[in-house]
Simulated scan of single mutants.
Amino acid sequence: MALRSSVDPQGRAYDLDNQRLADASVFLASAATNPTLMIVANAFRVAGYLASDVLG
């Protein structure tokens, strides 16, 4: 299966088990409008996954 992104749906990098990406670098292209709200929403989503992994 060919990878189409650098992270999985939970923000984990495919190369490293302990690396999460929660910023605009995971977006395929820059948006025509200000993407700040989408970046913040993605960061909260990834933080939720990270918290559940750390806290069990």
Rank of each mutant, 00 (worst) to 15 (best):
M1L: 12
M1H: 11
M1P: 09
A2P: 15
A2C: 05
L3W: 02
L3K: 07
L3I: 02
S5V: 00
S6A: 14
S6R: 11
S6E: 13
S6H: 10
V7R: 00
V7E: 07
V7K: 01
V7H: 06
D8P: 03
D8M: 00
D8F: 00
P9Y: 10
P9L: 10
Q10M: 10
Q10G: 08
G11F: 04
G11Q: 05
R12S: 03
R12M: 08
R12N: 11
A13T: 15
A13G: 03
Y14K: 01
Y14V: 00
Y14E: 02
Y14D: 03
L16Q: 13
L16K: 11
D17W: 11
N18M: 06
N18I: 05
Q19I: 14
Q19H: 14
R20V: 12
R20F: 15
R20A: 12
R20E: 01
L21I: 14
L21N: 04
L21P: 00
A22H: 00
A22E: 01
A22R: 06
A22I: 09
D23L: 07
D23S: 07
D23F: 07
D23N: 14
D23T: 02
A24V: 07
S25M: 06
V26K: 01
V26H: 03
V26T: 13
V26R: 06
F27Q: 12
L28C: 07
L28Q: 08
L28D: 06
A29H: 12
A29N: 12
S30E: 11
S30F: 09
A31K: 13
A32E: 04
A32Y: 02
A32Q: 08
A32F: 06
A32K: 08
A32I: 05
T33E: 05
T33W: 03
N34C: 07
P35D: 02
P35K: 00
P35T: 01
T36C: 12
T36S: 14
L37Q: 12
L37S: 12
L37H: 09
L37A: 13
M38Q: 09
I39Q: 07
V40L: 14
V40H: 05
A41I: 01
A41C: 10
N42Y: 15
N42R: 11
A43M: 06
F44L: 13
F44Q: 12
R45H: 09
R45C: 03
R45S: 00
V46N: 01
V46S: 02
A47K: 07
A47C: 10
Y49I: 03
L50S: 10
A51R: 15
S52R: 14
S52I: 00
D53G: 07
D53L: 03
D53S: 10
D53P: 04
D53A: 09
V54A: 13
V54R: 10
V54C: 11
L55C: 11
L55N: 09
G56T: 13
G56L: 13
G56N: 15
G56D: 15
